[in-house]
């Protein structure tokens, strides 16, 4: 009887220390794809944050497929390390903080808002917030590096608005992608931790 009650109770949260090799490979692959997408796909529309559409979608998809607590932070950390040390050379010293901040915001909001990331409202908000988190980290890095405020805050409002818009779009595309991917039995099982 007691065993039955225990089994039918709320699911026990699963943390990143129970990540499988498949989870780790998926996180590493998605992190590498995010960096490549940002580096290679340059769309000449001259609007700040437009590259976020792709990598935010990938972040949402990855967190949806690896539904374990802390996976978002790990994803942000791996992406940050890759962005900082991949050898492209044209990044600032605190580049990694942007990706880590995005991962932290992704993780916190995924845990705080109930439901999974296939929900469009949740994915849109998470996408917008994590993209904004990345911009906030960049601004904070500027404060740490003592960049003059007049330069640091130049165009910040416009930039924040476009980051939210592209992040929301990325979140929407991520939810859409996640819905399609979870129709594949193997990936659905992966997302459910089986």
């Amino acid at each position: 009887m007691s065993a039955e009650v225990a089994q039918s109770g709320p699911a026990k949260p699963v943390y990143i220390w129970s990540l499988t090799l498949r989870d780790l490979i998926l996180i590493a692959l998605v992190a590498a794809l995010c960096i490549l997408a940002k580096m290679v796909l340059r769309i000449p529309i001259h609007v700040p944050g437009h590259s976020g559409v792709l990598w935010v979608a990938l972040f949402v998809i990855c967190r949806g497929l690896v539904d374990k607590r802390g996976a978002g932070i790990l994803l942000g950390g791996v992406a940050g390390v890759l962005a900082q040390f991949m050898g492209f050379g044209d990044v600032g010293p605190l580049e990694w903080t942007k990706w880590l901040a995005a991962g932290i915001v992704l993780e916190v909001l995924t845990l705080v808002i109930p439901g999974d990331l296939r929900s469009f409202p949740k994915a849109i908000i998470v996408g917008a917030a994590l993209h904004l988190g990345k911009l906030a980290a960049l601004t904070l890095a500027g404060v740490i590096l003592q960049v003059p405020f007049a330069l640091l805050f130049l165009g910040l409002g416009y930039s924040a608005t476009t980051h939210v818009a592209f992040g929301a779009l990325g979140g929407f595309l991520g939810a859409l992608g996640l819905r399609e991917l979870r129709k594949i039995p193997a990936l659905d099982a992966q997302a459910r931790g089986r």
Binding site: F153, L156, T161, V164
Partner: peptide, 14 residues
């Protein structure tokens, strides 16, 4: 609120 704060900072230091 964060976006509005960013606009506020931009206006303040412009």
């Amino acid at each position: 609120a964060a976006v509005l704060a960013a606009w506020g900072l931009q206006a303040r230091y412009a």
